Amino acid sequence: MENCMIKKVAKISKDIDATDEVELSWFDMQKPNLTGVSKNGINFVVKAKFTHLHENDILVCEDDYAIKVKRSADEVFVLEFSDALVFAKTAYEIGNRHQPVMIEDYKITLLDDISLGDIIKDCYTNENINVEKTKGYFKPNGKAHHSH
């Protein structure tokens, strides 16, 4: 019944061997406090000592059990714009929600987040915006998801 015990992560290492791994979303990798379950069914907890996790970090537990962090695909919306003003207004509205975004030429990719539901709904009704819900690897511009 070792799997019922929760292992506490003592440190994060790089380039060491790991006996297990866990897939985490971009959002989960940003959390200072995280609980998870590895592929081998091991429950673990990471506390706020660490800023955030990166792909290929090795979570080393107090008993030296090592879990490699892998990146999972995120549920994202890809918004493609045919009009510069609509693009600017939509980017402004999303920015006011303090949500992380990936901005490219006439294209915004954002995480599927309940706080953006009304904006996404409006995008679907705008003929100048093509909306696609998909899975992808989210990598926001700048220092996204900061605290004030």
Rank of each mutant, 00 (worst) to 15 (best):
I114V: 13
D122R: 15
L116H: 02
D112F: 02
G142Y: 05
E132F: 10
F138P: 02
D118E: 09
F138H: 06
N130Q: 14
K121M: 14
T125F: 15
F138S: 04
G117D: 09
K133S: 11
K121D: 14
E127W: 04
N130G: 04
T125C: 03
K135Y: 15
G142P: 13
P140W: 10
G117P: 00
E132D: 11
I129F: 08
Y124I: 14
N128V: 01
F138M: 07
N141C: 15
Y137D: 08
N126R: 11
L111R: 06
L116I: 09
L111V: 00
S115P: 00
K139W: 05
D118H: 03
F138N: 00
G136N: 14
P140F: 10
V131T: 10
I114K: 06
C123Q: 03
E132R: 14
D122P: 00
G117F: 06
I129S: 01
N128D: 15
N128M: 08
G136T: 09
E132Q: 15
N141P: 07
K121E: 11
K139I: 13
S115Q: 07
Y124M: 12
V131G: 06
S115T: 07
K139N: 15
D122N: 12
C123P: 00
C123W: 06
I119K: 03
T134C: 06
P140M: 14
N130E: 08
K139A: 09
K135S: 11
C123R: 02
D118Q: 10
N128K: 12
P140D: 02
L111G: 01
I120M: 04
E132S: 15
I129C: 02
I120Q: 04
K135C: 08
G117C: 01
D112A: 13
G136K: 07
D122V: 08
N141D: 15
S115Y: 04
T134K: 15
L116F: 00
F138E: 08
I119L: 04
P140G: 09
D122L: 08
N126F: 14
I119G: 00
T134L: 04
K121L: 15
G136C: 08
E127G: 03
I114G: 04
N141F: 13
I119Y: 06
P140Q: 12
K121I: 12
L116Y: 03
T125E: 13
